[in-house]
Amino acid sequence: MDATGSAPANVMIRLSGVGKRYDDGTVAVQDLDLEVLEGEMVVLVGPSGCGKSTTLKMINRLIEPSTGTIEIDGRDVTTADPVELRRGIGYVIQQIGLFPHQKIITNVMTVPLLYGESKATARARATELLELVGLDPALHAERYPHQLSGGQRQRVGVARALAADPPVLLMDEPFGAVDPVVRVRLQEEFLRLQRDLGKTVVMVTHDIDEAVRMGHRVAVFAEGGRLAQYGTPAELLAHPADEFVADFVGSEKSLRRLSVVPLRREHLEPMDGVSAGQLGAAIDLDTSLEGALVHLLGSDKSMVGVREGVQFVGVLTPAGVHRALRASLAEQA
């Protein structure tokens, strides 16, 4: 049991002393120790050429490590059959990799069919997954990849990766090929999926804003394949481990903190004397400060109502956002 009296989460992925050196002497990853807990989303972030994609590909043995061990759910993956290993790990890439000559429904059915599922069972699973990622099977199942938008194709890629119900999902720049508006929508959709399904996810990005928004924990890689810092987004923003991390996080870290700090009751003003006409659209208590500020700025009201479940617990004003941010900074000091 942990300090809260609940059982600690299992380690789903463990990298111990993992390194990758190529024949020409190039070191892509050096002496990497990293643990990912069951149901956790970990984001690997850093500049180009720092080893984050190499690390991801070593987990499913698309690239073989030169040193160290990699375990998934306690099993050393270097002893596993690589084909069987990859069938049990969902993999989503920026280029999506759909089969262009196959219909969308057939693309999603691929892995269940490889596992010996009947066509009827595989089709039912694929239909369910298309709905899960926000695509109407009646509209999209019989189309071909070129008939879908980039964002829609990316959703199909996620559905296909989930088709075998893998415990682990690896994602390499999954939202990098779509425009910024679609990218944010896909991020929100995937965060919802991850909360609902509880998959263990390792994702690669070069975008620190995406890393802070998506990750329970973030691993910042430096050039030469060095792990510069590993921690929660709030820890990285408040206490960069070195000058490289501080520079990579950037001068906007106080604004980024808004996306990782949740509202609390002590940030709110009482409902007493507040009429419905004074309030903008209501938000939930677990909304981030960023989301709360967006609601405030998008409203012509001076405050928004905050609810927990169906019950209103207070109102948030701009002064409350400021208090919440100051409190967060003090806690991390």
Score class of each variant (00 low, 15 high):
G116I: 01
P167D: 10
A141G: 12
I96S: 07
M1G: 10
K103S: 14
K301D: 02
E235G: 11
H267D: 14
L132S: 04
L129F: 00
G225K: 00
L15K: 02
G17W: 04
L129Q: 11
S6D: 09
V156E: 01
Y91Q: 01
I70Y: 01
L113E: 09
E64N: 08
E35D: 14
D209A: 06
R183C: 02
E188Q: 11
V18C: 06
L316W: 00
T69L: 15
P262S: 02
K253G: 02
D272C: 10
L56H: 03
G39V: 15
T121M: 10
L279K: 00
A80V: 09
T54K: 03
Q147C: 08
G277P: 07
P180R: 10
M271V: 08
L85H: 07
A282E: 14
L32A: 14
L297W: 13
V204Y: 00
M271S: 12
G46H: 01
V220P: 13
T26E: 06
S302W: 12
K199H: 06
A177H: 03
H216K: 12
M271Q: 00
R257M: 11
V158E: 02
E128A: 13
I63P: 15
I89S: 03
F99I: 11
M109A: 13
E331M: 05
A281M: 14
G305N: 04
L170F: 08
M1D: 13
D196L: 09
G49S: 03
A138C: 10
V201T: 09
T106C: 00
R87H: 04
L227T: 13
V304T: 04
M214S: 05
R226T: 12
G305C: 01
R21S: 07
V204C: 06
V321L: 07
S66F: 02
K253E: 15
L56S: 06
M41E: 09
F190E: 00
R125C: 06
A281G: 02
K199A: 05
L258N: 13
D172G: 04
F221I: 13
Y115Q: 06
T55A: 00
G74V: 09
G273F: 02
M12D: 04
S302N: 13
D2M: 11
V201N: 10
V158W: 04
Y22D: 03
A177L: 11
Q311L: 13
A28K: 00
